[in-house]
Write a protein that binds this DNA or RNA. Structure first.
Lengths: 343, 343
DNA sequence: TTGTGAATTACAATCGATTGCAATCTATTT
DNA sequence: AAATAGATTGCAATCGATTGTAATTCACAA
């Protein structure tokens, strides 16, 4: 395990009788270096097994070629799809991804942000933890003008405009609810997570919009806050069974919850969709496995990741601070058996 | 957007009338520095908003505090669970994760490895792409003695012993098959991915072991190679329908495949498990959503990630090359409705 | 042959933190 | 008071690559 010292540009310089600066430029095909010289340099570098020392380069250029990504959970179909898209774009543009998860906790998120800051990430892609009340913990990045793109779980900052990639959750929530109403549902239970999170408040707003539009009142008993994880269905259904007047539909703010609700309803002998229709949100694969298949809101994970990364890279390549903007991606209601009351 | 120059240890030194080296040591609570001085240094550093320059530190120490992770797909329930575990352990030990996916292609994997090498990852966690025939592309890491831990998808290297974290796939494959045979199945179709991958060859071996043990012969028609993705079920069932003598069970090497097989069998009007029993592998959540619920092999993703990261960190902290070893994690057959022919 | 501008290449400072060793200081002993 | 060991702190080199500016080279025109 001989720790053979690294080959540096100085070694190449000595070998070729050139100066280190010429080597440095040559390796990057700098126009000031003669083509022939560039060729020789690269050839020798290869044959000597040269490997750039990123630390030195980063130190000098004060750049890391790294994009920090922080999101609530790595182990979520949707979120890992997003990352997958980001990774693709980042790799294509010569950036690396430094990834960490907040586990839905602002505290952990703060730590992560500090870490990203300390590792001098050139940009940050962030999806906020559920309990993040504001963007105060981003001061570090904002003040320094380090490019930042929020995706999916976003929030406004009073002083800084930030760029974000989202879907129109309100309209989407409306669409789902509207569809259920069209199917004849009148008591629609809505299940959402922590209402600090934009995605859930907005979907909830959309739900209310649809109810109002159709002349229904919003019944607080029909709004349940839940963690939307795998245990979700059991909790919701238990609650439904305890209700005097049962709902005739459930609109859950994510597919995991909706799917487990269907499973539990069936266990409880309640017919889906006849007695209770169910709709979810995200259109992850699991929605096509449950029976009846789940009506849900299609939500482009991989795409969202790609768009967010593309925007960030664009911002990083600009010297001027880029005008903040919000990209709203298309959503699409996917109607399947779980909500079809008619017919 | 004033690019206020960073605060460095030189600034702190000037402020306190000390030398930079003392500041450097003080910040790390070096024992040679008086406690009182350490306190003053840290206090001043804080108040001045000092932030370590990792590049400089890394350059000097020739360390990155970064762990590289390469795996086939980020958007896989199982694999993102693994990462989740790794992230937890890494964060706890002050390491960052540099993550990239090979998309099941050795070519991309090679590029990733080069990247990890260039970013001077202190260690590497790797799960091989399906078409990786050997570990040749790891020479870079192996030769340099950079700690490496393979997880899940592993392979042997003729010259270097490598550390790995796996389950006993052969035994697990045996267990699943044995269970199906016990349920009275006699023609068990096995679906696996590319047979270059240890996980699939071994599960296949286990399948054969069980058949042999029970006096059945291995029928090549009953072994299907498939990509095991969401389209898997449709392909398999089509194939089954075209067979003269249909199988009475399907043992798929992952849950996605098994679950989609169940869905398609039902669509085709074939009863599960009565006509065809089904078993999967991984025990991801989706296995409890399908109806009947899927019998599957429990496979500890998060745990595996934690163990792999822990081992790697242990290796990195050791000066001596650590003896390579293989950690075999427990697996457990989870029996559910999809395979219960009796009763 | 000499001069000129363009094309190439070299010099030397710089990016911050770390570290072996030297220097200084402190407290204790004689 | 001087000597000495131990506790603290400072010096200066170093980790490699980058870059503004200076120096050199070259081709070609005068």
């Amino acid at each position: 395990m001989s720790v053979n010292r690294e080959v540096t540009i100085y070694d190449i310089a000595r070998e070729l009788g050139l100066s280190p600066s010429t080597i440095s430029r040559g390796l990057r095909s700098h126009p000031a270096i003669k083509d022939e010289t560039v060729r020789r340099i690269k050839e020798t570098a290869d044959s000597m097994g040269y490997q750039q020392n990123t630390f030195a380069s980063n130190l000098r250029r004060n750049r890391s070629n790294t994009i920090g990504v922080i999101l609530p959970r790595l182990s979520s179909s949707f979120q890992s799809a997003v990352i997958s898209g980001m990774e693709e774009v980042a790799a294509k543009n010569g950036y690396h991804l430094l990834i960490s998860q907040s586990g839905e906790s602002v505290e952990k998120e703060k730590v992560n942000i500090k870490t990203m800051y300390d590792s001098r990430a050139d940009g940050l892609l962030l999806s906020l933890a559920a309990d993040a009340e504001n963007l105060d913990h981003l001061e570090l990045f904002l003040k320094k003008g380090i490019p930042l793109v929020l995706f999916d779980r976003t929030k406004e900052h009073p002083d800084y405009e930030s760029t974000s990639v989202v879907i129109d959750n309100r309209k989407a929530g409306y669409d789902v609810t509207h569809h259920l109403i069209e199917q004849g549902c009148e008591r629609i239970l809505h299940v959402c997570d922590n209402l600090l999170s934009n995605v859930y408040t907005e979907r909830y707003d959309g739900y209310k919009d649809a109810l109002n539009e159709h002349g229904f009142t919003v019944d607080p008993d029909l709004v349940v806050i839940d963690t939307l994880d795998e245990g979700s269905g059991a909790r919701i259904v238990k609650r439904i069974q305890a209700m005097e007047r049962r709902p005739d539909a459930v609109f859950a703010a994510n597919d995991i919850s909706a799917v487990t609700v269907i499973c539990e309803l069936k266990k409880a002998g309640i017919m889906v969709p006849r007695e209770i229709a169910v709709a979810g949100f995200n259109n992850v694969h699991i929605s096509r496995v449950v029976e009846p298949e789940l009506t849900t809101m299609h939500y482009p994970g991989v795409e969202m990741g790609k768009v967010a990364a593309t925007m960030l890279i664009e911002m990083m390549n600009q010297d001027q601070p880029v005008v903040a903007r919000t990209i709203v991606m298309e959503h699409e209601l996917v109607i399947r058996g779980s909500s079809l009351k008619k017919r």
